[in-house]
Nucleic acid binder design. Sequence first.
DNA 1: TTAGTATATGTCGATATTGACATATACACA
DNA 2: TGTGTATATGTCAATATCGACATATACTAA
Lengths: 109, 109
Amino acid sequence: MKTDKLERLQAAGWKVGSAEDFLQLSEEEARLVALKLSLSSAVKKSRIKRKLSQIDLAQRMKSSQSRIAKIEAGDPSVSLDLIVRALIASGATTRDIQAAFTVNERMAD
Amino acid sequence: MKTDKLERLQAAGWKVGSAEDFLQLSEEEARLVALKLSLSSAVKKSRIKRKLSQIDLAQRMKSSQSRIAKIEAGDPSVSLDLIVRALIASGATTRDIQAAFTVNERMAD
DNA sequence: TTAGTATATGTCGATATTGACATATACACA
DNA sequence: TGTGTATATGTCAATATCGACATATACTAA
């Protein structure tokens, strides 16, 4: 279980270092990472739903296609601010954002 | 109404410039600002509820008392990441965070 | 094949955000 | 009065994150 989660995070590009380092990740940090990953996939879902390309979304929020790709890939260099800005710009409702938090709760363990 | 909101934001330290600038704030940016303010007050509420001082919370999340004060004051220099980290460290549940989003929806207009 | 479109990945100089620190303010209590 | 505790505010060097750009990959269609 822990191992699965580690692999998922590494696959998403998170530098978690050794398994020991990961297991020492505080509960709080793990929750934040899970939250960001959940919101990241919500961005992709919302963008696709509105039939927007990454370039379309980038223009809407005055960012760049490569940034949108990094947001959706769960790149660790992306801030929560940018993720939420993308969610909003993609047309997600407050309810959509709340739903992403709920997914996070399920994924938290 | 718009004027009231402008005053609230300015009181919280947001550099919104002239009233015209504020009125040109895109709907998206306004939503993000309102969201951050809502989460900021949720931090204070959660911290008080657990009877933590700002110093206590700062130690829990390896930040500083002055940063906590700025979070709670809605200082524009504070990132969404830091606000959510504070919320989590203060003991807020996922449900608490969702509730803050709901408040945001009401405040959005 | 070639061309067009969408997405992914790596880099970098510019900008935003950080913790730490000093210091001010406010309030309670002796 | 002074002393202690909690919070607010301003600054700054270090670090994190940004948009932009180049380029790679993948898939369609001519």
